[in-house]
């Protein structure tokens, strides 16, 4: 038994075990998005769920992202078949109402769903404060690099993506981010 070799050779194992140990500290399913920090992709999508006052829009009306420049925009991708979307539904609507008098706009984008199912879901969940739009053929979802629902993008007043949330978002997080974005607005902003 060559003890010198026996004691030195296991050194090979150290980086391997180190790699595995490190691997256990992160989530392999989480994919960081390249979008934060960049201009949010534009969209012009048709409303199908009107939302409630004061955000109400008529079904058929088109929401264009560029027209929302100057406001903090919260874009939330959801689906009626998505279990986790139920968790965040109340938080989103409450947050929307909280910022009803601020330059903040919430928009829901339906993902891989049908209008009847989505409207029925909204009704079951007790209503949705803000309007939701249709994303036919998921072009906007692909534009935003969606790989699951729910995903929420919070855009600053210049239209840049400030935060992307993968999975359900909470009222606390929404408030914190929106507050900081509102505070960071240029002082000469008049809109």
């Amino acid at each position: 038994m060559n003890w010198k070799r026996a004691l030195l050779t296991p050194a090979i194992a150290i980086p391997v075990i180190g790699l595995f140990a490190w691997g256990m500290t992160r989530d392999p399913k989480y994919i960081p998005s390249p979008l934060p920090g960049r201009q949010a992709p534009a969209f012009a999508l048709e409303v199908f769920a009107p939302g409630e006052a004061p955000f109400q829009k008529a079904p058929g009306e088109v929401i264009r992202l560029d027209s929302l420049r100057g406001k903090v925009v919260v874009v939330n991708f959801w689906a009626s078949w998505c279990l986790a979307c139920r968790d965040e539904h109340q938080d989103l609507s409450r947050a929307a109402m909280r910022y009803a008098n601020a330059p903040v706009q919430f928009v829901g984008i339906s993902y891989m769903d049908t209008r009847p199912n989505s409207l029925e879901w909204i009704e079951q969940m007790g209503g949705q404060a803000y309007p939701s739009v249709d994303d036919p053929r998921s072009r906007t979802a692909i534009d935003y690099g969606l790989y699951g629902v729910p995903e929420t993008f919070i855009l600053d007043v210049t239209g840049r993506v400030a935060h992307k949330q993968t999975g359900p978002i909470t009222h606390a997080l929404l408030s914190r981010i929106i507050d900081s974005l509102l505070a960071a607005r240029p002082a000469t902003e008049t809109k």
Binding site: M1, R5, A6, L8, T9, P10, V16, I17, F20
Partner: peptide
């Protein structure tokens, strides 16, 4: 992770020692 560490180290030791 612990088990695989033990197995790796143990077997490397034994094989290297008997090489």
């Amino acid at each position: 992770l612990t088990f695989i560490a033990l197995v790796l180290v143990g077997t490397l030791m034994m094989v290297a020692g008997n090489s």
